[in-house]
């Protein structure tokens, strides 16, 4: 029996794994097991595998949206605009590049994200809330302002210039709070760069980009810290459509507002 066609061997094992052998097929498989001990070993391995599959519960077939394709394409396009592409909205960025390709690369420890992001609530009342942002923040210590002072590249130009840093003034913040801010225009949206000091440690704050039409685009959230922190946040609205950037408490109270010039 061990000279069965491979497909028949496969067929019998598959039927046994799902408990669908007919009595005749059961006898055929028993004979095969006697002649070929590898059948039992393979059946045991695959049986253990099959036992874990119900945990998947279901499989959703999905296709990338045009919007996702555009976001991916913008990575390369944005690289031409500025040398530091922003992290995906909704995820804390991991500054270190991925390791060199290696089939066993997955066995290496992943680089740790600097700060756990807080996912914004998905309130359905706000328009175009498709990309839920989160802040990529790092504590910078007493020196502060690393993001704002570190050169991002040679891109310079008036507000709205792709990749250029546009400093903005936040007003209305309590006297104990120090906020330095900037915007960076990208092909895929607007990045807000903040250095914040003095906000209540552990309290959550959101950053909202306000469009010229009054629409609000959540850009992400961050926690107040005992030390100055640098944050980068992304909003799915083009710089040319931005009128202001607001920092708010999680309850919605406004902490500071930066009005920006039209471009």
């Amino acid at each position: 029996m061990n000279d069965l066609e491979p497909d028949r061997r496969a067929e019998l094992i598959a039927a046994a794994l799902s408990g669908e052998l007919t009595p005749e097929e059961g006898a055929e498989l028993d004979a095969l097991r006697v002649a070929d001990p590898s059948v039992d070993a393979e059946f045991a391995e695959l049986s253990a595998l099959v036992g874990g599959l119900p945990a998947v519960e279901r499989w959703d077939d999905v296709a990338p949206s045009a919007a996702l394709a555009a976001r991916i394409a913008a990575i390369a396009a944005d690289d031409a605009d500025a040398p530091a592409p922003a992290a995906a909205p909704g995820l804390a960025t991991v500054p270190e590049p991925a390791p060199a390709p290696d089939d066993r690369a997955d066995a290496q420890s992943p680089p740790a994200a600097p700060v756990t992001p807080i996912r914004s609530s998905r309130r359905g009342l706000r328009p175009l809330l498709l990309l839920v942002g989160a802040a990529a923040c790092v504590a910078v210590g007493l020196g502060g302002g690393a993001l704002l002072t570190a050169p991002r590249g040679a891109v310079e130009g008036p507000p709205g210039t792709l990749g250029a840093i546009e400093e903005v003034d936040f007003t209305g913040a309590p006297a104990s709070v120090d906020i330095d801010g900037a915007l960076v225009a990208h092909t895929w949206g607007t990045e807000t760069v903040l250095t914040v000091d003095g906000l209540a440690q552990g309290a959550a704050f959101t950053v909202v980009v306000v469009g010229e039409d009054g629409a609000e685009y959540e850009s992400g959230a961050f926690l107040g810290s005992a030390v100055p922190i640098d944050c980068r946040l992304n909003a799915a609205v083009l710089r040319e459509d931005v009128a202001a950037v607001a920092i708010r408490s999680l309850e919605g109270g406004q902490i500071a507002l930066a009005e920006v010039p039209s471009v």
Binding site: V62, P64, L68, I72, I75, A88, P89, P99, P101, D102
Partner: peptide, 28 residues
């Protein structure tokens, strides 16, 4: 979570793009 999944895909391609210089097609 479709939105989070799309963010993950974007992040993966971003990391790959940043590390493209180290990609060696002969190793994988």
């Amino acid at each position: 979570d479709r939105p989070l999944a799309e963010d993950c895909v974007q992040e993966a391609f971003l990391r790959a793009w940043r590390a493209r210089e180290s990609f060696d097609g002969e190793r994988g």
